[in-house]
Nucleic acid binder design. Structure first.
Lengths: 121, 121
DNA sequence: ACAGGCACTTACCAAAAGGTGCATACTTGA
DNA sequence: TCAAGTATGCACCTTTTGGTAAGTGCCTGT
């Protein structure tokens, strides 16, 4: 079995790299909400309906370790933490906008295709 | 007009929708190569190094059912099939460009973050 | 006749991603 | 004192995704 690692073809194109950062069931949503400003953990959890603590924390940590979001512990008496986009994160969200636009324009087609796949499995 | 079902918040934002179409280990690469023009199955397989038949076919089928790529069977004697982007697919690839750009600019940071995650697991 | 390319298809498995639920340590309010 | 809220951690389990390997039918070159 050949190893593909000898020449470090890490990513085929930038998109490929970017996807490693934003893929994850809840990441786009998290970014979407954080783009509105710093948000407390609990607040974020209520915004991203349906996410579990485990998932929210996990994805936030990944985004944090990727330098996309910043965790701020206010070190206050009744535990107070919030999350915000770093400048790096902000630049990412900006680059995401055309894809957002494309998705919005074709939302119905996409939804239809998804249903098609689900039912035809 | 599409009326949104209050019970079906399908997508939070367009990006979320888009991700359903382009996520998949090999899809960005496939799109990347198809963007260069129609490509035969075997040719594509050689381009997307490391992909197995199963995966390549599967992802192509999904992209096809999403209306992103078009499969052309030339009905020729020694089996000849090729894949190309539909106009819809082309518009997607175009919308992907800024994300490609972002990924290219920050490729190193992303790779570093990925390594960080891998080793710290 | 047989190896080998073409474009797939299938069965079986391993790994990754995600979900559920309980536990923590602290604090405030009733 | 007890419940509830805050921000997490952890164990266990299911679902989804991806990988391996083999086989199919057809055709061509040797």
């Amino acid at each position: 079995m050949a190893k593909e690692n000898s020449e470090t073809p890490r990513f085929i194109c930038g998109l490929h790299a970017t996807l490693h950062v934003i893929s994850g069931k809840w990441k786009p949503l998290i970014l979407f909400f954080l783009n509105k400003g710093p948000t407390r953990y609990g607040e974020l959890k209520r915004s991203v309906r349906g996410v579990s603590d485990k998932m929210l924390i996990q994805q936030l940590k990944e985004l944090e370790s990727d330098g996309i979001v910043r965790r701020t512990d206010h070190g206050e008496i009744p535990l107070r933490v919030d999350y915000s986009l770093t400048p790096f994160g902000t630049s990412l969200v900006r680059a995401m906008e055309p894809l957002c636009g494309w998705g919005e324009e074709h939302e119905e087609d996409i939804a239809a295709a998804m249903d098609r796949r689900k039912t035809s499995r």
